[in-house]
Amino acid sequence: MKKKILSLKELSERTYGLASGHRACAGCPFPSIVKMILGSSDYPVVVANATGCLEVVTTIFPYTAWPVPWIHSAFENVAATISGVETAFKALQNKGVMPADRKVNFVAFGGDGGTYDIGLQSLSGAMERRHNFLYVLYDNQAYMNTGIQRSSATPFGAHTTTSPAGKVIPGKVQHRKDITEIVAAHDIPYAAQASPSHWGDLIRKARRAFEIEGPKFIAVISPCVPGWGYDESESIELARLAVETCFWPLYEIDNGIYKLNYKPKNKLPVKVWLEKQARFKHLLDKPELIDEIQNKIDEKWKKLLWLDGKKVED
């Protein structure tokens, strides 16, 4: 029986994650997310990466930080790219070119722009075709690589360079898409939300996903030092507060059954999370806008509490 979770000692014996020398901003948490995902696999991992921060900072030729086979093609097509890799693997196994007993876990990494927006069609297609891969979204809630432009993952009220907080318009005027629910609507065997702050939960989810044949999806919140505006030592704290305020609930939909994986004993008001970030500072004297964010969170949280333990079709 395989272990559902790993101790950090066990994880450290499996992987160091990305190699040193990559050019992610100081304090960027996505290398930790990569470490947890790669270390969770019991088999070799082959990675496809969408264009974005993670791809750019880890593979500036001739330097690459990836210790595993890795492919990048374009921004909007990571799910199609991994579909091709996974299909070739199957074809080559069937034709006897690749050993039939070889097991590989295929992982696609995409940011929110490459997932919620430009890559949504490709992701939807790959899930509908039931390719065997895990899609990991690192969600930093804007187009950070190009300099902090709003995406459909950007929360209501957030200041970005294309939703600037101005005299008339207070940052982004729309709420973000609920990507996990959109993906889950494809009726895939496993979809989840996780946070690097709750590492045991993230590793368990990755390991659960790797057990399942077919398309899997894990959305991981990935705070962004320059994009969100906070001290670089606080990335993990920002991720933790997103969970504690229920802005980013930790839950999973495993073969249609909803499970809330973490219920904060003391659900913090979202203001605690907002006030730590420069992108929301213009909201602090607009309580009605903070209320709007809070209401949206409460609504979803109520829905998740109700769904907890239920099957989608129940």
Partner: peptide, 19 residues
């Protein structure tokens, strides 16, 4: 094909002077 062999190679690039 613009690939990189003998990965990872990034340790050749030191980032210690950022701090």
């Amino acid at each position: 094909g613009a690939i990189v062999r003998d990965v990872p190679t990034s340790p050749e690039f030191k980032t210690g002077d950022w701090k």
